[in-house]
């Protein structure tokens, strides 16, 4: 639950949930997931955001977003993939 994932906002929609408000379809290196933008009201389409458990927590520039992917890879290995919105090392189960 702790790891944040950087992704690029493809589209912003109104979730229809009054408090959650705006949500974004975010591209995480090919996986698309929805994230709430309630904590980053300044975020716009094409911005990069850092997402924690379904909530964007900060807007990044592209360079920082790339660095964040590198960090995820450093933490989890090169084959990091998203399971739900949880970054997971590929084949994590077998190597334990």
């Amino acid at each position: 639950m702790c790891l944040a994932v950087p992704g690029k906002i493809l589209e912003i929609v109104d979730s229809g949930e009054p408090v959650i408000g705006r949500t974004a379809m975010v591209d995480f290196q090919g996986s698309r997931l929805e994230a709430s933008l309630a904590m980053v009201p300044e975020a716009e389409v094409d911005d990069w955001v850092l997402v924690h458990a379904g909530f964007a927590m900060s807007v990044l520039d592209e360079k920082e977003a790339k660095e964040n992917w590198d960090m995820l890879k450093a933490a989890l290995g090169d084959d990091v993939e998203l399971v739900g919105n949880e970054p997971t090392p590929k084949g994590d189960e077998d190597d334990q």
């Binding site: 949930e17 924690h52 909530f55």
Partner: peptide, 21 residues
């Protein structure tokens, strides 16, 4: 609801959402 400061804001917002609806 476990976690440090990174997950708690989302939980708080979800409580507000449930309350509102």
């Amino acid at each position: 609801s476990v976690g440090f400061e990174t997950t708690t804001p989302g939980t708080a917002l979800s409580v507000l959402e449930a309350e509102n609806r």
